[in-house]
Design a protein around this nucleic acid. Sequence first.
DNA 1: GTAATTGCAAATACTTTGCCACGTA
DNA 2: TACGTGGCAAAGTATTTGCAATTAC
Lengths: 164, 164
Amino acid sequence: MNSRHHITMADSNAELRDKIVSGLQERGMRRTPALVNLIGEMVAHTQPASLHDWSKRPGLSEHDPATIYRIMMKLEHAKVVRRVNISERCSYFQIILSDAQPDYLVCTDCGDLQTVETPPELRAMEERFIVQAGWQGVRHELEFFGLCPHCAQKDNAQQFVIAN
Amino acid sequence: MNSRHHITMADSNAELRDKIVSGLQERGMRRTPALVNLIGEMVAHTQPASLHDWSKRPGLSEHDPATIYRIMMKLEHAKVVRRVNISERCSYFQIILSDAQPDYLVCTDCGDLQTVETPPELRAMEERFIVQAGWQGVRHELEFFGLCPHCAQKDNAQQFVIAN
DNA sequence: GTAATTGCAAATACTTTGCCACGTA
DNA sequence: TACGTGGCAAAGTATTTGCAATTAC
C-alpha cells in the first residue's frame, strides 16, 4: 500500500491471481500457463460457470478442455474453487475468495442468477454438526429456485398438462 | 378409518400409492403398471435415489430404464416427486409426501444421508422473494456436506497433497 | 534429469429421443 | 378406435481416463 499509483482492478486481480498461484505452488503444483490463466479468469469473473464455459473463455480457449477439467479438480480438492449445484445439467465452479460463500436465487427458466445473503442460522447448524455430532469439514449448499418476475409473466399462459 | 383391522404399513402404503396414482389419472396420465409400481416403490422408500437406483428396485427391474425416466420426468413436472442434488454425479429423486421437504446432511465419502430440520428462516426468505421481488414458485434446496464421524477418523491419516 | 502436466483420443456415465408395437380409456 | 405409453436402440451431453510428448523445476 506504499506504492505511488492507485491500485487498479487489473492490478489487484493480477496480484490476487499470483498470490493464489503461489500458494498452490507451495503445495506442490507447478506454475503452468493453463493454471495461471484459469485462476486469472476465475478471479476476474467470480460468478459460477460450467467447465464448458470456463474452457471457452478468452484466456483459456487455447487450452484443452481436459486440461481445464484436471486443473479444476485439483483446485476443488485444494478448496481454492467450489462446486455449485445451480444446474442439474452439469457442475458449476467458482473461485473461493472469502469465508462467506454466496448462495443463489436461480431462475429455472432463463438461468438468471442473483446472490442472496446466507442466513446466519446455517453457520450455527454447521457448527452443531461438527461439535455435537462429530462431523468434519461441514459446509452447506443453498439455492433458491423459481421463476424470475420476467419469466413468471411469460409462463402464465402455459397450461398445466402432464400427459405427453 | 372405520375398518375393523389395524392399518398396517403395507395397507397404508398401498392406499397412499393408489391415491397418488388416481390423482395423476385425473390429470391425464394412464394407470399403467410402470406408473403404479414406481409410485409404490417411492412411497415405500421415501429416501432420495438415482434413476439408476429406482430402475433396479425389485418392483421396477422388469421395466425399461427409459420408461422409468419418462415417468419420473412427468412426476417431477406434476410436483409429485422432487429432484435432490445430493450428488454431483447424477440427480436423485424423492416422492413429495408433505409440505415440509427434508434437507440433508451428506457424507462426501461414504454417502451416508441424514435428515436435518429446515431452519424456518428459509421459508421466510422464499416468501420475501415472492412478495417483495415478484418471483414465482420459489423453493429451496439445502444440503450440508462433510465427513461423517466414521469417515473423518478414517481419513485423518491422509496427507494433503495436490500434485498428482 | 525427473516428475508433473498437457493434448489428443477414446472410454465412461448419465440423460434424452425416435420409432413402432402395445395397452388403456 | 384413438392416443398415451412401453421397449428397444441409438444419439446426445458431460465427465473421466490412458498414453506419449512436453514442460516446469
